[in-house]
Each structure stands twice: as structure tokens, then as C-alpha cells.
Write a protein that binds this DNA or RNA. Structure first.
Lengths: 200, 200
DNA sequence: CCCCGACGTGAACCGTGGTTAACATCCCGG
DNA sequence: CCGGGATGTTAACCACGGTTCACGTCGGGG
């Protein structure tokens, strides 16, 4: 399936007044996060934006196409963002780590729904789409691994990869402890814990 | 709809030769973890233990009853285990934390499938069963919160709860970084990182 | 020996939900 | 004013999968 090209509408994606297409994607993300993609009906998604179920098919080829586009966008944003902040951090591995941590924490706090969907519903994708998402995710992980390796040259690549996943788990715990803490407090807490965990 | 009483079969649960009922639960746990509860059919579960789909109904009242029993058992094991290890650790909060960390790490390494199912498929339970599971989970979390509060009396309860969830996320990342590291190495890595994250 | 309960099987039933079809509405460019 | 594309709606279609049914087998106790 893959994401349909759609050259023009994809560009002004998050404009001031989001297009109906974007409204749908956003509503779907929220619903998918709450109940799981397979438990959400197209009628539910439609109702969330004020239309009936079949209206969705004016904007997407099908339900799985929505999920695919959603996951591909997330993976792409994460991958590109990580590349950007690492470059901006200069040559110091410690500064690079701080940049990655801050980036991931902000992303998780800004998009708890996307975080939840990404690691729960990847299995609902077609093998083709899943492969593409995994490729992007792998590139994202490898950026963390590179930084962690620079910080601790004695550690094996496998160990650094496991550390990276552990840090993701820590930071992505946000959706589970929802709302109890103010955002700045939560941000500070996660940054501190992740940094401590990473630097031992 | 709650776990059926079943006084005799429940007792010799994990005997040397697991009963057909236990085989089914174990196979279901593995499949649920791989694909998500809603994506695995009763036929799949049956096939995994060498019978046809409807045979399941000789042992369970339905598919959701399996999931409910699975999640209730996990929550119960975690809650009871935490209570046990904290008591065994004596009065020192630091020793209590170490005990909780070791306990959770061992559980996650021993039962990656259960860990995955627990935090992904809770939403698939009936409201009644979900409430019961959440009650047990809350009691488990509160044990961590108590220890974390003892370690850092200035922190608010909300902050300690967020810290506990972050630590769960870190430790439960095991299923994501599957198998690349030997078990002892993975155990040491997770214990070190969790302890660092918890004690800043 | 025979009956009964435990355990399975294949076939059928049926609700749910994704998808398509056929038909309105609205708005804009010619 | 008219035609057509974008966007929706309702009703129908249809596959999938959980569940039930009617029937077999088998082993152990009266």
C-alpha cells in the first residue's frame, strides 16, 4: 500500500486550519492510542470529526492506509529530528546525548498518542509498510547507538542498542503516567532520569 | 467475567507436565504478545497446542476469559512478589529499592510475553475485569512509590509515581531489545540503569 | 461389559466492521 | 445559468472470526 503521493495536500499539512484529511489523521491517532487500532471502527473515526464512516474513503484508500501514513510520518519525524539535533549539538558526545534526550522527551510529551500507537500497532501494518517503518526506526536507533558508543567506547554495540531501547522505554512512559505532573516538571524529571540512566 | 473458581486445577498450575489448560494459556500469551490479542484467532491458539479452535471452549468460557485470567495472574504475581521482596529486604529503603528493581528485572526477563500483553491489551478487557487488574497494578505501583518516597522525602507523590512508571518503562523495554544480549548481561545492564535512574 | 464424563472435531450460525454502490449537496469556473 | 468535482449520506455487500451444535472417541469405574 505505501503512502499515496498527494504532492500538494501533504505539504501544507499542519497549517493553521487543518484540512479535513489532517483532522481525520489526528482523531484516528487519538482513538488508536486509546483503544488500539484494531478496536477502533471507521465509524468511530468519522464520528470523531463529525462525519459518517464511509466518508473516510474520500480521503484515504482504507483504514490500514491511515495507520501506515501515521506510522511512517512519526518514524520520519523522529529520524530527521534526531539527525538535526545531533548535528546542531556539535562534536561533544555528551552534548549530543543531551540533545537526543531533550528531543525525545519533548516529542513524547507533545505526542503521547503517536508514541503509544507506534509501539503497539506496528504489527497491524502490511509487511511492506512495516518494513519501511522499521527501516526508519532502525536509523533512529543507530543515531542513539553511535552517541552511546562514543560515550562508552568499551561497550559492545549490542549493549548500546539495549541501552537505547531502555532509554526509549523510560522516556516513552509518559503516556502511562498521564497528566499528574505539570509539563515542565515532567520534562525535567524525564531528562534527569534518562541522563542518569545513560551515563551511569 | 472474572476468573472461574476451579479449585483443584488452579492449584497444580505449573506442575511438571502442564495441563492442557495451562498449555493453552501459555501459547495464547505468546501469540497475544506477538500480534496483539485482537489479531489472534481462537483457531490460531488451538493450532499452537495441536487442537482445533472450538476445543478451547472445553477449558475456557471464551477468548476474553483467557485474556482476563492471564492479566489477573500477572498482576497478582507482581503485586504479591513485590510485597514479599520488600519485606525480605528489611527496613533500609535503598535495599528495598534494589530488591524491587531486581524483582522486576527478573520478571521481565522471564516473562517478556506477559509484560507485552499486560500493557498493550488491558483495554481489551471487560470494564469489570479491567477494574480488578488496575486495582492490583495500583497496589504494585504504590509499593514502588512508598520506597521512592522514603529515598527522597522532598519529592511529591505525583513525582514518585511518574518515576515509578519511568522505571517500569525502562525495565520493560526487554521485549523490544530481544535476545541480542545474554541474559546475565541484560540483567546487569537493566539493574544498573534502573538504579542510576532511580537514585539520580 | 457398559455407561458416562472429559475432550475433540467439523459444520453451521451470526454479529461486527471494512468496503463499495448509488444517490444528494454545495460550490466554483466558464 | 450550468456542469462537474469535491465531499457526504444511507443502504447493501461480504469476509472474518467468535461461538454454539451435534456428533465421535476414549478411558476408567460400577
Amino acid at each position: 500500500m505505501g503512502v499515496t503521493a498527494e504532492p500538494d495536500s501533504a505539504l501544507h499539512a499542519d497549517a493553521a486550519r487543518p484540512s479535513r484529511r489532517e483532522q481525520i489523521l489526528q482523531a484516528a491517532a487519538r482513538l488508536f492510542a486509546e483503544r488500539g487500532a484494531r478496536s477502533v471502527g471507521v465509524d468511530d473515526i468519522g464520528a470523531a470529526v463529525g462525519v459518517t464512516g464511509p466518508a473516510i474513503y474520500r480521503h484515504f484508500t482504507g483504514k490500514d492506509a491511515m495507520l501506515a501514513e501515521m506510522l511512517l510520518r512519526i518514524s520520519e519525524r523522529l529520524q530527521a529530528g534526531a539527525e538535526r539535533v545531533v548535528l546542531a549539538a556539535g562534536d561533544d558526545p555528551r552534548a549530543q546525548l543531551d540533545a537526543l534526550v531533550a528531543f525525545q522527551v519533548d516529542f513524547a510529551l507533545d505526542n503521547p498518542a503517536l508514541i503509544t500507537v507506534q509501539d503497539r500497532d506496528l504489527g497491524a501494518l502490511s509487511e511492506d509498510d512495516a518494513r519501511q517503518v522499521r527501516r526508519l526506526q532502525r536509523r533512529y536507533v543507530e543515531q542513539w547507538v553511535a552517541v552511546l558508543t562514543a560515550l562508552d567506547p568499551d561497550a559492545t554495540t549490542a549493549a548500546c542498542r539495549a541501552r537505547a531501547h531502555a532509554l526509549f522505554g523510560l522516556i516513552n512512559s509518559t503516556p502511562h503516567s498521564a497528566g499528574r505532573l505539570s509539563r515542565p516538571a515532567m520534562r525535567a524529571l524525564l531528562v534527569t532520569m534518562a541522563t542518569s540512566a545513560a551515563t551511569g
